[in-house]
Design a protein around this nucleic acid. Structure first.
Length: 444
RNA sequence: UCCUCGGUAGCUCAAUUGGCAGAGCGAUCGGCUGUUAACCGGUUGGUUCCUGGUUCGAGUCCAGGCCGAGGAGCCA
């Protein structure tokens, strides 16, 4: 008897198969039991008719509780009425073995509050929506590696324990490293700038840590980021890479995770339009657009939120309003040098702005990428480090890179959870991580 | 750190002017051969977040505290 996986159910129509899983829901219809059974790859309706199984087996089926572990054998048949994921098939059960009868399960199919669910995150991930999100997340992570690996990027790990602050100490998690103060990494970028000297094109992919006291739907204290870095690359080249890269991620999800996106009831019309090229606007243009929106807004509260002067950074309402003007992700380029990091290249002839670009996702999902050209001239970089009041001795090795074959280069960082939230259409980033770490939560 | 809202049954919530603590869901028992968060009937359910105060009487009013949510600030 072959053990099959629900995601491949269509290949087994008409066959007698065995399923190893858990009872997701049960509907008692008297002489007929409908079991929704999950196996980790999908949900399949399994039907137990009283007249088709032994009497004691039917009694066992009647006693099954939500989340009980079961092994079922039966015949797969196509039936349009059958719910589930992918759906359209059901199992006519002939054998039923209970591996463990679950106690009263706290998470019902009805509504629950955020705190209740987050306290039970270890169980909540079994629920259909959370399961679907995390399946999409895994596909996003694979698509990231897939595109980079096939375009000549070498994956290189960068340290999580780092000796100094990349940019200021206010948002770093401090740890005791055998008596020396160290920090959890906020970025692998500086190391990647060393790595490109050895490998040309690289990326790092892993968790990053920010001790920001941000309490918003877009922030986690621990999140995953992929950071490609490219030698001999300018801002134009970088944006072309980014739009190819992000399009590949989105299109892979649409192709391979349609069932999961259906569970999430995600509107796919805008996602299907994510193809290069993406629109590009400058920061100057963005500020003008926002000022125009503020003036034209009939809602005084919204007008106040959108009001801004040249030189400031965008808040969430600004990003949402800007992105709403486009159907695709939009690049905002050439931010004021003063609001961005010290290593970004000033624009030739206009040093008050830098060769940087953020990518804003559509539909209000915010900034998913930040990237820039990096300063490759030793003396310019040293001056910027000093202007920012950073200790030059901490950056000795970083400055060293500008002495030995320094070339124009650029890179970016894409936040995985924000990308998951966008593609899945999530209201809050906490559902984009299996075990989210936030200002008020580090359990389970 | 600031602003706003909230904390009542296992869960989601209601409770009029300060006057008997309620519903739905879940669980459980019974019924039903096509359910999709099934439906119908019975049963089960309480430290009203904590401490103190006002009052004949507090879930409700007052003071302090704790916890949570949404937003702001912060955030390459």
């Amino acid at each position: 008897m072959s053990i099959i996986r629900i995601e491949e159910i269509a290949q087994h129509a008409g066959q007698t198969v065995t399923l190893q899983g858990w009872v997701y829901a049960r509907t008692d219809k008297g002489r007929l039991q409908f079991l929704q059974v999950r196996d980790g790859t999908g949900i399949l309706q399994c039907v137990v008719f009283q007249k088709e199984v032994a009497p004691e087996m039917f009694d066992v089926a009647r006693q099954l509780t939500q989340e009980s572990a079961v092994v079922l054998t039966g015949t797969v048949r196509a039936d349009e009425r059958a719910p589930g994921t992918p759906g359209g098939f059901e199992l006519g059960v002939t054998e039923l073995h209970v591996v463990q009868l679950a106690g009263e399960y706290p998470i019902s199919p009805k509504e629950h509050g955020v705190e209740f669910l987050m306290d039970r995150r270890h169980l909540w991930i079994r629920s259909a929506r959370q399961w679907a999100v995390l399946r999409v997340r895994a596909t996003i992570m694979r698509a990231i590696r897939e595109w980079l690996d096939s375009h000549g990027y070498l994956e290189m790990t960068t340290p999580i324990i780092t000796p100094n602050a990349a940019e200021g100490t206010s948002t770093l998690f401090e740890i005791d490293y055998f008596g020396k103060t160290s920090y959890l990494a906020q970025t692998g970028q500086l190391y990647n700038e060393a790595n490109i000297g050895a490998f040309g094109r690289v990326y790092c992919f892993g968790p990053t840590f920010r001790a920001e006291k941000s309490k918003t739907r877009r922030h986690l204290t621990e999140f995953w980021m992929v950071e490609p870095e490219v030698a001999y690359c300018d801002l134009d080249g970088l944006l072309q890479i980014e739009e190819q890269f992000v399009s590949h991620i989105v299109q892979t999800c649409l192709r391979e995770r349609a069932a999961e996106l259906r569970v999430l009831e995600r509107d796919l019309t805008l996602l299907s339009k994510v193809n290069p090229p993406f629109p590009r606007i400058t920061y100057d243009d963005a500020v003008q657009r926002l000022q125009k929106l503020a003036v034209e807004s009939s809602d005084p509260e919204q007008a106040a939120q959108l009001k801004m002067e040249w030189g400031g950074d965008f808040g969430a309402p600004h990003e949402t309003a800007l992105a709403a003007q486009f159907e695709q992700p939009v690049f905002v380029t050439h931010y004021p040098t003063i609001v961005k990091a010290f290593y970004m290249t000033p624009m030739a002839g206009r040093p008050e702005v830098c060769n940087s670009a953020d990518m804003l996702a559509p539909e209000g999902f915010g900034e998913i990428i930040g990237g820039s050209e990096r300063i490759h001239d030793h003396d310019v970089l040293l001056a910027r480090i000093q202007e920012h009041g950073l200790p030059a001795e901490d950056y000795a090795w970083y400055l060293d890179l500008r002495r030995f074959g320094s070339v124009p280069h650029a890179g970016f960082g894409l936040g995985v959870e924000r990308t998951v939230a966008w593609i899945c259409g999530l209201e809050h980033i906490r559902e984009a991580s299996p075990y989210p770490r936030m200002l008020q939560r580090n359990t389970p």
